[in-house]
Design a protein around this nucleic acid. Structure first.
Length: 552
RNA sequence: UGGGGUGUGGCCAAGUGGUUAAGGCACCGGGUUUUGAUCUCGGCAUUCGUAGGUUCGAAUCCUACCACCCCAGCCA
């Protein structure tokens, strides 16, 4: 786990800051509240908050809420909760919408200085005029309207005197620029949507490129960290700030610098808000917090800890290349943490009844069992041993494959923390299915090795009379190929078997009583957390991750 | 065929002219083990996209080439 002895590894952003020798690093995490946070955001959060903390700085949480069509209060509170849960504290909670007045004032100043103009071309015309990747664009016939004319039109736009799409405010930069972002980008559009924070005050809303740099500057952000796809926007970011500083607008602006890092990609899943929204809305998953989802809320429900997600982000590093991380990197962090911290329990997922014929029907012996094999501090618990127990169906084979170490007819196996038993009889139903085993126990094997023979297998079990019926949910990858986006439609790559529900599991009583969110290792099977759906009458467990399996 | 980026083992990733080219994940072996887990020991790039060049010395500097990613929303 992350600790003082395990410092954050060197990366290009840290090196850059070292060279700058600045005295404070101010960052921001700027999500648009149009969906739930996922692992890609976790990487950005860890980077932004982590680097600021490391250099005596601070980080703002800023909602980039400039498109009221897509944003909502629900998303906003989910984002706040997730950032807090991950373990980070922001200095200020900010909203781009808090700057709408300043942004507007600045836009008027840019109009007055001749750096912005109102265009009245249609969206399609503007697209045509923009040119292509290899062809320069051409100037709009409205490009040379006077500042007075532009100001009047822009104010009319603001005052709701025009319809959506009729006009747009653009920067006057260079229609022939090889960087398409500089071909007179739009900075304000007419939109009459109700905004969840500013209500119906505005008929015009600023666009991302215009809003983001100014918001950073207003908040005195020093390091504006974003993903690679914004590299092309950096010249625009700087252009706007330069013009804004030179303008007459009464807005105090700092000097943020944008730096881009590679986005996170994870095998067998998708990390894009748009696609995650589709998975939720089309019902491919049970919700944003479905334990199969790569969202923070999904991982939390699955049983991942905040520490494990932070550790994952530390391990994957920060570079300028877009990494595709194997799922095992994610699984190993939570497995490591839970191996150290999770108490052990026994649970039989697919039960097979075993009668210990040598054990009296009315006898129950209480065994003292340790909660963790390597950590005595985790204590012990009492476990009853009775005549009837359940073992895993897969722990018995009539015709064992090579190297099978579990129970076979006439063979012996250790019941974990209990006796060695021998299988005497196999009871089958009319279809030849094994429904019950008759075994005898060796009374001289409790807490000691049997004499004169070695018993190689150890299997888990529960007392039939003292275990509790439970539901256990086993998860597999959401997609059945490592690169679902390579599919013509990624929806076709959805794994139909990503959720396996075992309705008839039997868990020992002490696990059945656990609170929602608590985690155990079910011995030999993996780590499990108590799901939100769990009740004392009907416990429900999620498999967080399996144990490493090196057999075969 | 415009612009912006990236290329170090299967996946990440340190490295910034002189190191036997860190580390993690994965994988493969040995040992311990009442979890086929854990733990532990060991193995795993004569080579850094390719080809040239500079240098006593190159993953690090230069040149050319190749591959992949991003950009033509009134989304962010």
């Amino acid at each position: 786990m992350a600790s003082e002895s395990d410092p954050a590894p060197s990366n290009f952003i840290r090196s850059m800051i070292e060279k700058q020798a600045v005295d404070t690093v101010a960052t921001r995490f700027p999500p648009e509240p149009n969906g739930y946070l996922h692992l890609g955001h976790a990487k950005s959060i860890c980077l932004n908050f982590g680097i600021a903390e490391e250099y005596n700085g601070w980080t703002n949480l800023r909602f980039d809420d400039t498109n009221p069509d897509k944003e909502s209060e629900e998303y906003m509170s989910a984002i706040k909760r997730d950032v807090e849960w991950l373990g980070f504290k922001w200095k200020s909670l900010c909203y781009a919408s808090d700057y709408f007045d300043q942004l507007y004032e600045c836009a008027e100043a840019l109009i007055k200085s001749g750096d912005a103009y109102v265009d009245s071309l249609s969206a399609e015309e503007i697209r045509e005029y923009r040119g292509s990747l290899t062809q320069p664009g051409k100037e709009s016939p409205h490009r040379n309207r006077s500042p007075e004319q532009n100001l009047e039109l822009f104010r009319e736009m603001r005052d709701g005197k025009h319809s959506e799409g009729d006009h747009i405010l653009r920067l006057k930069i260079d229609m022939a620029s090889s960087n398409i972002n500089l071909r007179d980008p739009a900075i304000y559009r007419i939109k009459k949507t109700h905004h969840y924070r500013t209500a119906d005050k505005w008929n015009v809303y600023p666009l991302y490129d215009y809003t983001h740099c100014l918001s950073d500057a207003i908040e005195n952000i020093t390091h504006s960290l974003c993903t690679l796809e914004f590299e092309d926007h950096r010249p625009l970011y700087n252009w706007i700030l330069e013009k804004a500083r030179a303008s007459t607008a009464n807005v105090e602006l700092g000097h943020p610098v944008q730096t881009e890092f590679g986005p996170l990609n994870l095998e067998y899943t998708v990390l894009s808000k748009r696609k995650l929204i589709e998975l939720v809305q089309q019902g491919h998953v049970r919700g944003w917090d479905d334990p199969r989802m790569p969202t923070i809320s999904g991982l939390r429900r699955r049983g991942y800890t905040a520490a494990s997600i932070q550790e994952f982000c530390r391990r994957i590093g920060v570079t300028k290349s877009s990494a595709v991380i194997e799922m095992s990197a994610m699984e190993t962090v939570i497995r490591d943490e839970l191996n150290a911290t999770a108490e052990r329990r026994m649970a039989v997922l697919e039960p097979l009844k075993v009668i210990i014929t040598s054990w009296a029907a009315d006898e129950s012996k209480t065994l003292e069992v340790s909660n963790h094999p390597n950590d005595p501090d985790l204590g012990t618990r009492q476990l009853p041993f009775t005549r009837e127990v359940y073992i895993e169906q897969s722990d018995f084979e009539e015709v064992p494959p090579p190297k099978f170490k579990r129970l076979i007819p006439g063979g012996e196996v250790r019941l974990r923390s209990s006796y060695v038993i021998r299988c005497d009889d196999v009871i089958k139903d009319a279809n030849g299915r094994v429904v019950e085993l008759h075994c005898t126990h060796d009374p001289d094997t409790l807490g000691k090795k049997p004499e004169g023979r070695k018993v190689k297998g150890v299997i888990h079990w529960v007392s039939a009379a003292n275990s509790v019926a439970a539901e256990v949910r086993i998860y597999d990858h959401l997609f059945n190929r490592p690169d679902p986006l390579a599919e013509e439609d990624y929806i076709n790559a959805i794994n139909p078997d990503s959720l396996l529900v075992l309705e008839n599991a039997q868990v020992e009583a002490s696990a059945a009583q656990a609170e929602i969110g608590s985690r155990f290792q079910f011995e030999r099977q993996g780590y499990f957390s108590v799901d939100n759906d769990s009740t004392p009458e009907r416990p429900v467990f999620n498999q967080v991750v399996g144990l490493r399996d090196t057999k075969n």
